[in-house]
Design a protein around this nucleic acid. Structure first.
Lengths: 230, 230
DNA sequence: GCAAAAGTGTTTCAGGTACACCCATGA
DNA sequence: TCATGGGTGTACCTGAAACACTTTTGC
C-alpha cells in the first residue's frame, strides 16, 4: 500500500492520444481508425489508450504507438494536454496528446485490418471524433515551428532519401513551394547530409542520388553553438 | 448520473502547477511558496492545486492563479504535462503545468503571509520540490522561443513602460545584452508602441518616456500577414 | 529525339550587427 | 559642473530570395 496523502480529491481518467504522421505522395498523412467501441463507435479517431496506474504518460504513449504501428522507438514529442470537461462524450477524460513521426514503409500493414486503420492525407481530413481535429491542427502548427529549428523531419523518411523527396517533405509541412536551388544550397551547406553512391530511379529516368542524415555531424554542430534552420 | 463507458480503467489525481513569472530589478522572478502540508512540507514549491471533476484544466489553472496572486485574467499558456510515476512523493499525480506572466505590481502582497510565498529571482533559484525545477527551466526555454515571435513579454510590465525597461526585460529573458540602438530601431519600426508624454524619472534624472503596447495595431499587422519578431 | 525530373551559380536586396557621441537633469 | 542614464544615425556585411539553363536517360 502506498501512503495516501491527498484525500478526498477527485480522480480522473487519463488518456493518451497519438497523432501519428507519415509522408507519402507529397503529402502528410495521419493514421486514423474507425472506432470500435462506444461512444462514437464507427467515427474516425486518432490512436489512443488509457494511462495505467504503473506507467508514466510517456510510457503509455510509447505503448500506444507500438501497438498501433508495429514499430518501436518511434520519434514522438508531447503536444499538450486537452482537458475540457465535455471533450469526451463518454466520461470526463483528460487526454495527453503526443505527435509522432514515422517512416510509413516500416508500418505493419496487418494492423490495418485489425484496427480498421487508414493513413489519411491531411488535406482530405474527415471529421474526427471529439477534439481530435484540433489535435491534428495543433500538431501541424507545432511541426511547422519545430521542423524549422530541429531536423525532426527526417523521421518521416527512410534512412536514405533523395533531395527532391526531402524538399517535397518540407513543402508539405509548410504548404508552400520552395526554390530548388535555394533549398539544396541551404541544406547542403549545413553539412549534415551524407551523399551516397546509389540513385533512386523510381521517380525519374535520370535518378536522384540518395543521401542520409548524419546525426554525429549534427550533434557536433549543436555542440559548437550552431543551429539547424530551414 | 453520467453514463459510464470506460469501465475498469485506472483513474488518477490530476494537478495543475503554475510557474508564475514576474520581472523586477532587471531579472525574471518566479513565485514560490513554502509548502504547508505533507509530503515535503516546508520545501519550496510552485503554486498548484488539484483539478476538480467539474472544471477544465484551463479553469483549474485560472483558479490557482487567481488564488495565489489576487489578480484575475492573468496571461497564461500551457507548458505541458508531467507524468512520471514517481514525480510526486505523496501519490501518483499527473501534473499539467502552466506558465503565467504577471505584472508584479498588481500582486496582492497580503498573500505573501497567507501562503508564505516569495518572488525568487531565477538566477538564485533554490531547490524546489518534485520536478518543479524542471518546470521552471522548461518555462524559460518556452518563454525564450515564444517571446521571440509573440509580444507576450508586455504581460510582465505595467500598462506603461519605458524602452530601457523593455530592453532590460528582453535581456533578462535571453540572458544576453542587446545593443540599445538596434533594439529601439527594431521595436519602434514595428509600429506597435504608442509613445506617451509622461516620463519615468525613477531611474534617471533625465527620465525616460513611457510607451504603451497598442494591441489593435498589433492585431492589424498580424492580419496583414506580418510577424512580430525580436 | 523528346519528355521529365535532376542538378547547378549568380545577382540583388533587406535586414542584422557593430559602433560613438550628444542630451537632459538632479544633486 | 559633473555624474548618470536616455536618446539618436550610419556603414558594413551576411544571409534570404529571385531567377533559367544544362544534364541524364528511358521510352
Amino acid at each position: 500500500m502506498t501512503a495516501s496523502f491527498y484525500k478526498n480529491r477527485d480522480t480522473h481518467l487519463i488518456a493518451v492520444d497519438c497523432i501519428i504522421m507519415g509522408f507519402k505522395d507529397n503529402d502528410l498523412h495521419v493514421l486514423a481508425a474507425k472506432r470500435q467501441f462506444e461512444p462514437m463507435k464507427g467515427g474516425w479517431s486518432l490512436m489512443g489508450g488509457f494511462v495505467n496506474q504503473g506507467e508514466s504518460i510517456n510510457e503509455a504513449a510509447g505503448r500506444v504507438l507500438d501497438e498501433f504501428t508495429g514499430i518501436d522507438g518511434i520519434f514522438m514529442e508531447q503536444l499538450g494536454a486537452y482537458g475540457e470537461v465535455e471533450r469526451d462524450l463518454g466520461e470526463r477524460v483528460v487526454s495527453i496528446a503526443y505527435y509522432a513521426l514515422v517512416d510509413m514503409d516500416k508500418f505493419d500493414t496487418s494492423l490495418v485490418e485489425k484496427y480498421d486503420a487508414r493513413w489519411i492525407s491531411i488535406s482530405h481530413l474527415p471529421e474526427l471524433i471529439f477534439d481530435h481535429n484540433k489535435m491534428v491542427r495543433d500538431t501541424i502548427n507545432t511541426l511547422q515551428r519545430r521542423a524549422a529549428v530541429k531536423p525532426i523531419g527526417f523521421n518521416l523518411l527512410g534512412d536514405q532519401f533523395t533531395l527532391p523527396s526531402l524538399q517535397s517533405l518540407y513543402e508539405a509541412i509548410y504548404q508552400e513551394t520552395i526554390d530548388k536551388r535555394n533549398f539544396r544550397k541551404k541544406i547542403l551547406s549545413m553539412d549534415i547530409l551524407e551523399k551516397l553512391d546509389e540513385k533512386d530511379k523510381s521517380s525519374s529516368k535520370r535518378g536522384a542520388f540518395y543521401y542520409q542524415f548524419n546525426k554525429d555531424k549534427y550533434d557536433q554542430l549543436i555542440q559548437q553553438g550552431l543551429h539547424f534552420s530551414l
